[in-house]
Design a protein around this nucleic acid. Structure first.
Lengths: 161, 161
DNA sequence: ATTTACCCTACTATTTTACTCAGGTATAAT
DNA sequence: ATTATACCTGAGTAAAATAGTAGGGTAAAT
């Protein structure tokens, strides 16, 4: 599990799609303008998103991209994994044969934690993120500083449970 | 919130410290050997960990590093933030002044999600990760494939709640 | 036929990562 | 005191990832 700006771009673009591509598809040009990502870079990201069946494309004039499924069927982990593809990460090639026992402990620990993070992000869909934002907007019209931690935890619980 | 191999190294090293530095401090030489990270790179990482009061150093022969606090008082988010330092991330400088309303929506959505992830990792301490691994070892002596998701979620719930 | 907008490959600049080198300083042991 | 240890620091550097450019294609709507 890797969480870089690349994955951020992908998630941001997917959220943009989820919001704007209700009826007609959205062009990469539009996303590029709204999110400040270069068109060609978006094309590269969407090539990967398409290969992973996360989006579908419509060619020609009036064409663009749409989510392949519903916004509540696409989770964040899938999106990030799609653009990152094949992060082996493990020093010993995942076979756990890096010398004898002791050496491998912390290595295993990290793998365990990495799975936790992945599992966590698998439980959050694009729709969840959008809904949460709507809720926040309603509760706090303009000023929005402070008192964050509590609402976060309740959100997490509602997602996982 | 960024989750790169750099952060992985830092977390791995901290876990190594938590396990080995019970009585006497641990040298970077030792961690370097166990975890396969170059000594000088470790020195750079630990300089940042020290500045953030996550570890304390003992100089001279017999010296090395120890955790500043107890293993259950250090959370994963702190460790990762310490070595990454200042990820502005936001395209509009966090002031939310990137044009009018619409443009900023997905931007806000990502920030929201990013906070969720941060909050999630703040709820997991080094000790938690170690404990979880111990538990896994006991339940499954050697073969450890399949049936993962369920135990993960219970772990997450126990951490956050 | 022309325009639109996806599609694809290769190339390049920038940044980050990970490491090396070359010194220093505090401390324990002799 | 001297020496060895191991932290500390900064500058430089190779490799990789990120982000973007360039230059072509192809499918489809007008």
């Amino acid at each position: 599990m890797k969480l870089t700006t690349k994955g951020r771009y992908a998630v941001t673009a997917m959220l943009d799609l989820a919001i704007h591509a209700k009826a007609s598809p959205v062009t990469l040009q539009d996303i590029s303008g709204r999110q400040g990502i270069s068109l060609s870079y978006l094309e590269q990201l969407f090539a990967k998103l398409r290969k992973n069946d996360l989006v579908k494309s419509i060619r020609g004039p009036g064409g663009g991209y749409q989510l392949q499924g519903a916004a509540d069927s696409v989770n964040i982990a899938k999106v990030i994994d799609a653009v990152n593809e094949s992060t082996d990460v493990t020093a010993c090639g995942g076979k756990g044969n890096c010398h004898d026992g002791q050496q491998c402990i912390t290595h295993d620990l990290w793998c365990e934690l990495s799975e936790q993070i992945h599992s966590f992000l698998s439980g959050i869909t694009l729709q969840d993120v959008i809904d949460k934002q709507q809720l926040k907007k309603q509760n706090q019209p303009s000023t929005d500083k402070g008192a964050e931690s509590l609402t976060h935890n309740t959100f997490i619980l509602s997602q996982v449970g």
